[in-house]
Simulated assay, not measured.
Amino acid sequence: MKWHHVQDNWSAFYEAIQNRWPDAEEDRLDEIDGDQRAFISYIAELTGQDPAEARDEIRDWLTGELPSDVVMDPLHDNHSILLSEKFVPEGEDEYDDDSRFGDNE
């Protein structure tokens, strides 16, 4: 995932952040409000690392999955639906044939 996923859905990542860094406090996360530099500084302070090491640890954490709260967000879902319209040929009614999905009725 990219940082903009985290920044745009900051509060949805609280649980994932606290799973990775159990000492992270929700009040401090509220203050950070998705600011990447502030988050790096906070993780460096929390773990006793220098900022470069904390940034690398956060980069590693970003390779994980998006939390389900973010994936199921209507904005994310609607964006995915809009992107999928390129696979429906012009003039085709997407509701006509569901045989590809195991529903022939």
Rank of each mutant, 00 (worst) to 15 (best):
W3P: 00
V6T: 09
Q7C: 02
D8F: 07
D8T: 14
N9H: 15
W10H: 12
W10V: 15
S11D: 13
F13C: 05
E15C: 02
A16D: 13
A16R: 10
I17L: 03
N19T: 08
R20C: 04
D23Q: 13
A24G: 10
A24D: 14
A24W: 07
E25A: 08
E26D: 08
D27R: 04
R28E: 13
R28A: 15
L29Y: 01
I32F: 01
G34F: 03
D35W: 06
D35F: 01
D35M: 03
R37P: 05
R37G: 12
F39P: 00
I40G: 00
E45C: 06
T47Y: 04
Q49F: 04
Q49P: 00
D50F: 14
P51R: 07
A52F: 04
R55H: 03
R55I: 06
D56Q: 15
D56E: 13
D56I: 06
I58A: 04
I58S: 09
R59E: 09
D60Y: 07
L62R: 09
L62T: 04
T63K: 15
G64V: 14
L66M: 06
P67S: 08
S68T: 14
V71W: 07
V71N: 04
M72D: 10
D73Y: 03
D73H: 02
L75D: 13
H76Y: 04
N78P: 05
H79W: 05
S80A: 09
I81N: 03
E85W: 14
V88E: 03
G91R: 14
E92F: 02
R100D: 06
D103R: 03
E105Y: 10
E105D: 06
